[in-house]
Computed example of a mutant assay.
Amino acid sequence: MSDRKHRIAIVGTGGIARSHARAVTSHPDRAELVAAVDVDLDRAKEFAAAWDIPAVYPSLTELLAAGGVDLVHLCTPPNSHVPLAVECLAAGVDVFMEKPPTLSLDELDELIDAEAKSSAQVACVFQHRFGSGAVRLRRLADEGVLGRPLVALCNTVWYRDDAYFAVPWRGTFEVEGGGPTMGHGIHQFDLLLSILGPWQKVTALAARQARPTQTEDVSMALVTFENGAVASVVNSLVSARQTSQLRFDYENATVELEHLYGYKDENWSVTPAPGQEAVATAWSADAVDVPSGHAAQYAAVLDALTSGAPTPVTLAEARNTLELAAAIYASSFTDKPVYRGELLQGTPYASRMGGPGAPWSSTP
């Protein structure tokens, strides 16, 4: 593309759409909102009025038929992501898709196949990768400043009451794809994976402790990585003191992050190992403070669209994250360790996160 403004449409005008609208409008010289789409046309009109969007459509099909759109933001429930993204790809229109990208590994592979046949591409929303703290951590790790990664902790311990699950599509494998493993903690362990790279093996458990949900409300996993690091991953919706925590213990330092739904540089801390005080100097040398969030990732997406590079996070990158989620369910429900690459196409936990069904439920 040229340096002209990218023409943006938001499909699905529920709560998360506001984050996408803020991201677009934070780059007024590079992107403009030209359309809003929702099956609830009144809601779309209200959203369009709030964000000064000139056109409203009741369906993606009508939007694409009208033309004049460069990038579609998919902010619809997860079960609609694949058919809508495939429709965009068939029309040669790029996609920026909310998490979780698909409900299963098989669906993600279907989308990868559709992308391969299109001139367009799909980027998945994993915005925590793009805050300056995460960028800095990856750079220092790549440069060898931190030494070898040894141990990591990744905790997404949040609170959602019974009323939260009254929304019909929440807490189901068919529409949401799973519980906190898929819908909440996936952001934190995606950041974990973006730092530590490909995982190798997972041993996990999941439980329904308190909430009226088909899915788990808690999961816990022990993960080994190809680089030798080991990590624990906890995802919870029953934790009254909510927090999101990551800790990385390297040979030369411990790097920690604590926040809730988004971080700034002030949420990170570095503790050098004895004799490794230079690590703290290297960390503080970069004064840029970019908060994590949709706007940070969106800047990278616009850069890629302008240069013709792959838009981050690519489907291939997202697959590593989604495969870990599937493996957590598979290990939890079969009481066995699961290795990366083991969940082959068409097998129960590749075709559905919950496999044959959660052990506490008589129905899938």
Results as ranks from 00 to 15, higher is better:
Ala285Glu: 14
Ala285Asn: 14
Ala285Tyr: 06
Ala285Cys: 13
Ala285Ile: 11
Asp286Pro: 08
Ala287Thr: 15
Ala287Trp: 12
Val288Pro: 05
Val288Met: 14
Val288Leu: 14
Val288Gln: 15
Pro291Asn: 09
Pro291Ser: 12
Ser292Trp: 04
Ser292Phe: 03
Ser292Asn: 06
Gly293Thr: 11
Gly293Ser: 09
Gly293Cys: 09
Gly293Met: 13
His294Cys: 03
His294Arg: 10
His294Val: 05
His294Thr: 04
Ala295Phe: 12
Ala295Thr: 14
Ala295Leu: 10
Ala295Asp: 15
Ala296Glu: 05
Gln297Asp: 12
Gln297Ser: 03
Gln297Met: 13
Tyr298Gly: 01
Tyr298Leu: 04
Tyr298Glu: 11
Ala299Tyr: 10
Ala299Asp: 15
Ala300His: 11
Val301Ala: 01
Val301Ser: 01
Val301Lys: 10
Val301Leu: 12
Val301Gly: 10
Val301Tyr: 06
Val301Met: 06
Leu302Thr: 07
Leu302Met: 09
Asp303Thr: 13
Asp303Cys: 07
Asp303Pro: 13
Asp303Glu: 12
Leu305Lys: 10
Ser307Glu: 10
Ser307Pro: 08
Gly308Ile: 13
Gly308Pro: 12
Gly308Glu: 10
Pro310Asp: 08
Pro310Ser: 00
Pro310Thr: 10
Pro310Ala: 00
Thr311Cys: 03
Thr311Gly: 00
Thr311Lys: 13
Pro312Phe: 02
Pro312Ser: 09
Pro312Trp: 02
Val313Asn: 09
Val313Met: 02
Val313Thr: 01
Val313Lys: 01
Val313Tyr: 04
Thr314Arg: 06
Thr314Pro: 11
Thr314Phe: 01
Leu315Glu: 04
Ala316Met: 04
Glu317Met: 00
Glu317Gln: 11
Glu317Pro: 01
Ala318Phe: 03
Arg319Asp: 03
Asn320Met: 09
Asn320Cys: 00
Asn320His: 14
Thr321Phe: 04
Thr321Arg: 07
Leu322Gly: 00
Leu322Arg: 05
Leu322Tyr: 13
Glu323Trp: 04
Glu323Val: 04
Glu323Asn: 12
Leu324Gly: 05
Leu324Thr: 10
Leu324Lys: 04
Leu324Trp: 01
Leu324Asp: 09
Ala325Trp: 02
Ala327Leu: 04
Ala327Pro: 05
Ile328Trp: 01
Ile328Leu: 03
Ile328Glu: 01
Ile328Arg: 01
Ile328Cys: 03
